[in-house]
Nucleic acid binder design. Structure first.
Lengths: 147, 147
DNA sequence: CTAAGTGCAAATAATTTGCAACATG
DNA sequence: CATGTTGCAAATTATTTGCACTTAG
């Protein structure tokens, strides 16, 4: 059900845009493709360095920037913490709990109604790859209720 | 129609939480209350310093943190830029155009359906003060269509 | 009075950049 | 082999913190 772009899709995107496929790019792409959660640049660097200790943070940043500009990776912020990156999947959104920080990915379908309303009332075409909503997850909601 | 909290509401919030009302806090609160757009900590500092040159950036950060913890101010990130702060208003959302950067504020009502769905399907309580959606505004949509 | 708040300077943390060496297509 | 990429170190930017001093309640 979680059908995001895979390693090969990322590599293909790089190649098609005329970029060169290097081992550092392959490692960053593989790390992103394998991750089930959202990773900070620092976490990505650490994971990449397990296999290739010499890949530097700046290279990772540059690669992330390239992947974002290709539209296959996006980043977002939670609170004041470092940016977190992840591969785009089929149209989807994120529910980020303001209390515990957990992110839940939800299906595009959830935005069908909203998307139609926005287009109709504001002429705004919602970008379904970037929807991130803040609020309280079920568990935190109940804990807060108890206070 | 833009009925956000005013200066007095912010001051009252500080006082009720047991905090002391200092001139620096008053200046930051006034700056936020007056602003019609979203301001970075740096912009806020600069504006505050017009009247009180000795207020330091660190003080501004501390005050912003206090106001956020009181729930009367929120911050968000656009891209990799510095955080921007603003006073909370009636439940509302922002439509940010990814192409021209223009932000349109929209009414809470637009999220009624979505909010109900999320609560029902995911047990997620949407925070209506933080909704920010990316996409293409009407004008950019048409320009892109022409390409 | 007395703790909360502040200014300043120094410390962190995240990200960016310059440049010479390197490797892909 | 021409040029996109990289590693490294140094530069920037945003934000935080330690501490002695000030001030609101």
């Amino acid at each position: 059900m979680d059908e995001r772009l895979g390693l090969e899709d990322l590599i293909t995107a790089i190649r098609e845009s005329g970029g060169r496929v290097t081992s550092a790019k392959r490692a960053v792409a593989a790390t992103l493709a394998d991750a089930r959660d959202h990773l900070s640049a620092d976490e990505i660097t650490r994971r990449v360095q397990i296999g290739q200790p010499d890949v530097s943070p700046s290279t990772v940043y540059r690669i992330l920037e390239e992947l974002e500009s290709l539209g296959v990776v996006v980043h977002s912020h939670v609170g004041h913490a470092a940016a977190v990156y992840h591969v785009v999947g089929p149209a989807h959104g994120h529910l980020v709990c303001s209390r515990c920080g957990v992110t839940t990915e939800i299906a595009a379908r959830a935005f069908d109604g909203l998307s139609r309303d926005l287009r109709h009332h504001y002429g705004f075409e919602l970008d379904r790859h970037h929807v991130a909503l803040a609020g309280l997850c079920r568990q935190c909601r109940e804990m807060v209720k108890d206070l």
